[in-house]
Design a protein around this nucleic acid. Sequence first.
DNA 1: TCACTCCTTAATGTCGACATTCGACAAGGA
DNA 2: TCCTTGTCGAATGTCGACATTAAGGAGTGA
Lengths: 223, 223
Amino acid sequence: MSTFDKESHEAMSIIKKTYKDQVVDYVYQLLLSGDLSPGDQLKESLLAEQMGISRAPIREAMKELIMNGLVDYRPQVGNFIPVLSPKQIIDSYTTRGVLEGFAVMETCRQFSGEDFEKLDNLVDEMARFAHMSNHKMVVQVGGEFHDLLISKSNNGQLLEYTDRLSLKLHILFYKHWGRLYSPEEIGARHNKIVESIKSQDLDRIEKTVREHYIETGTKIATL
Amino acid sequence: MSTFDKESHEAMSIIKKTYKDQVVDYVYQLLLSGDLSPGDQLKESLLAEQMGISRAPIREAMKELIMNGLVDYRPQVGNFIPVLSPKQIIDSYTTRGVLEGFAVMETCRQFSGEDFEKLDNLVDEMARFAHMSNHKMVVQVGGEFHDLLISKSNNGQLLEYTDRLSLKLHILFYKHWGRLYSPEEIGARHNKIVESIKSQDLDRIEKTVREHYIETGTKIATL
DNA sequence: TCACTCCTTAATGTCGACATTCGACAAGGA
DNA sequence: TCCTTGTCGAATGTCGACATTAAGGAGTGA
């Protein structure tokens, strides 16, 4: 039907409508490209000038970035890209491990044979891309892996927090993810998670996922 | 010294400075007093008129309320007090239980004899106030109890989320807390937590705190 | 009666200008 | 030298007005 076509067309072309959303994406790009580094200040006037808009939508975007932990706000002073201490890095990853560990544990019985097949394939892909030093694809496939892990949970509150955390950690540290572990280690570490789910041992699952993230955080914190 | 006196005086008198903070507090009061109920819309123009200020600080305040989960934002439509379904209530309490359960478990060895004395006293107080049907004090002492429980944790990321969750749940449901359980049940439920910490059994501690909150959420969800 | 279109209304989204406040640096005195 | 004080610049905080858009009702046709 034409109605559907129209809707899907709109969905494709007008994904970003308000200036606020464009600003958020712009800042994400600045961070991912390295043009913006921890400690840098985001000056509203400067951003407004660069994007050819007023400060109002800039301020709106700042609030969203603050909510997602990608900007530190100091009243009457300004907005800064956060500089995470080693402990703060570990804390963030630990919290993510606590939340996702619970999510996976709680939903472990919903994983089908097809799901396990997908998970195994994703692990293989990660190891293969790691062997080819294609760090970008390692990160992408790793994202799919973790998305599938928590996809069974329908705890909206928990997913809200895990989404925020994974976004924050992705933006701030994705550059390191591909080089943290050897291809063999990457495969082994993620296989460990899949195996724990297959075991249906609740405590083991939760502990495995938790330690996976704590290990990752500890490693990043020591870079 | 006069320097100290001056600082403490300032800290006492100039707590609320910006209009934004005043708006946030104003909305909290509206919620706590019942003048604002789930489903109600917060119209920027109306709030601005009521407080004699412009819409700019109102919008700033909305962002903070959204971040804390006390306002639902619908683009181009407005800001609404969230209407939580029974499942959403349970999800929120479950998530709080997961986070605080981990926090308490991880710090259980730091509780001193003095801490346990305080915890026991707080439980007694709660039961006593419950017997007197002083629901307000039950809630307040309960807050002190839970604050002490997580006070040992220095995981900033985890505390950030637990603070947001406890604030949200307090604002939305504090009215019910005093009447959920009998005085005996209140004492028993909280004693169970203290006893688990005394046992130093990590799994038991985490499980106890978790179930404490899931139970509470389930009970509130059925009201 | 029902469905569709148009229009009005009221809310949010954005703008440019002004007010306020923090931080740094320079000047002065113990 | 160190501490205090005053000034200045630059950034955020706030304002009132205008632009844009979503929701609901009036009106028309079958």
